[in-house]
Nucleic acid binder design. Structure first.
Lengths: 330, 330
DNA sequence: TTGTACGCGTTATCAC
DNA sequence: GTGATAACGCGTACAA
């Protein structure tokens, strides 16, 4: 690999001059500039980025941590992040935490040793106390996750409203017996706490009370959806509608319903969450909560770049709206 | 950021000794080793990777180029690549070419200036003649794509067989009028040429001839699938089965069929390709061709690492088998 | 406008 | 075993 010295030698000029040409400095005679360019072309010279960085020039790659990229929600998010980053001349280093605390820490370490200049966390496995120290090495922005105690830029969705408008929609359709799936434990302060709040709020407003039998916790997959439907059908007091918390679970519910001859939405109305492409493939097409993933990715990159360029930039919390997408399953 | 000199100073030893500790050299007294480790911890010292690389130590990131990550096929592929790379202590820089030649070249340049040590190309937009020169900067392996003229490691699927067993299955089910979708132009030497070959081969063996009206070219999306079904139904001589070339197209066909009251598989049998998760969500569940994506990603990483570690390693062409997954749409 | 010389942080070489 | 020191490739004060 040719170095700047080779170029200098070939062009009969000094390294300094070559460097100036490379970095577009003013005050170089046209003639020498051309001589240098000629020599660079001839040698196929490419600046060594490690030497440059060592010397202090800024780097240009950002890291993104997601739980699993095969989840369409996250592949769409990464897509958006990659596109935005590219527009801004940043590269994207992609990581899957696989919901593994140690893997997450491994990735955060890349920030520490400056393999990346900043990180977008779209998953967060460790407690904030253990993540927080890494912010001293470079900016971290939270995306689709948030922690009240974390004083970092955050881009998130209004999950309270997401659940609220979903439940509300079911109520307006005349349902009073509404089952509910959550990815967490339906605790005050755990995973999905915002959605839980929206759910409770909508019920309260309508004067309905929660039937604990109709709460399904720790649900995530299509298989979960199938088993939920079966459990529902086995109840003596059956719900007539279900808020599933994800399109995948909703798909499982609908598939199982068909198997059992349960009609959707006549016998059971089903509402998903995410508005994934599959929502339109399912029969009946899925009513669901649409999330502005694209915009979320853009904003996250925007915030991150802001922080990278300006260490003291204000820490913004951006909340994006969700909306109801009514189709045929409710 | 503390440097190796800071550690040396604090521990009262030389940079050389500190470096030896960092790199696990033998022949260091236990006592000094501990003194160094203590100092490192105290300072929160992290070696600067750019300096290390400048000095000659190998880097550890590989690039992956895919057309679009939101295509489940590729998100699963990237997933597999990321997992394999991680196991081998490599990081993954992810790129979407968006089927754009220039973007592809931009990424290939990262190889040139050593931002990545090697590249897995799961998409290939430019002619090989323009890509080939980049191989001098680092290894490139082709994944799910191949070019006869390219003398680089290649991991691919047996597409001829993929189409062949699909069509064969339809024939065995008694179909003789079989429509066919291709992503290319059904040309001798273009996109999907292998599948075309498998299609023709299966028909020939069964003594069937190709009806040009039943060939649909340039099809990719669910929307394409819908319009294909409509066109089929408008024909006087209708096919009774269709090989769609992708689960997405198949989904579109089935959705449109339902709308029109066409029964699947009674009136039209549909076969997909890929075996994406959606294949099980669709009603009827999709018969499709399963591709060993996981294995493909692993092999690609394996080949790439082989090349990176051993410049002269043999160039292997690995062909992975596909298989028929029979469900309810045929 | 151009060149000289130094330093970025690390590791390898060579002495001791 | 350990410590100077040079070298990796580049950018920039400083001098000219």
């Amino acid at each position: 690999m040719p170095t700047i010295s080779d170029v200098a030698k070939l062009s009969g000029l000094s390294k300094a001059t070559v460097s100036r040409v490379i970095n577009n400095h003013p005050y170089i005679s046209k003639e020498k500039r051309e001589r240098v360019e000629q020599a660079m072309k001839e040698l196929g010279y490419v600046p060594n980025p490690y030497a440059r960085r060592l010397r202090g020039t800024l780097t240009s790659t950002i890291g993104v941590i997601v739980p699993r990229i095969v989840n369409p929600f996250f592949s769409y998010l990464i897509n958006s992040i990659e596109q935005s980053a590219f527009k801004n001349n940043y590269q994207v280093l992609m990581f899957q935490s696989n919901e593994n605390k140690e893997k997450e820490l491994y990735f955060l370490n890349l920030l520490k040793n400056r393999q990346v200049d900043g990180i977008v966390m779209a998953a967060i496995e460790n407690d904030w106390e253990v993540i927080e120290p890494y912010t001293q090495y470079g900016p971290i922005v939270l995306c689709n996750e948030y922690l009240n105690k974390a004083n970092v830029p955050t881009v998130r969705l209004d999950q309270v409203k997401g659940a609220y408008i979903g439940i509300r929609h079911l109520i307006e359709k005349g349902h009073t017996k509404i089952a509910y799936c959550t990815g967490g434990l339906f605790a005050e302060d755990g995973k999905d706490k915002d959605r839980n709040k929206g759910y409770q709020q909508a019920l309260e407003e309508a004067g309905l009370t929660i039937n604990p039998n109709w709460i399904f916790i720790n649900k995530h997959t299509m298989e979960d959806g199938k088993s939920v439907l079966k459990k529902m059908m086995a109840m003596s007091d059956r719900p007539t509608a279900i808020f599933t918390g994800s399109d995948e679970i909703a798909a499982g519910v609908i598939i199982a319903a068909k198997q059992k001859g349960v009609r959707v939405p006549e016998d059971v109305a089903v509402i998903g969450f995410d508005d994934q492409p599959a929502a339109e493939m399912i029969d009946p097409k899925l009513t669901t909560i649409r999330q502005p993933i694209e915009e979320m990715g853009e904003k996250a990159v925007e915030q991150l770049i802001l922080q990278m360029n300006n260490n003291g930039a204000a820490v913004e919390i951006i909340e994006l709206p969700v909306e109801l997408q009514v189709r045929d399953s409710t």
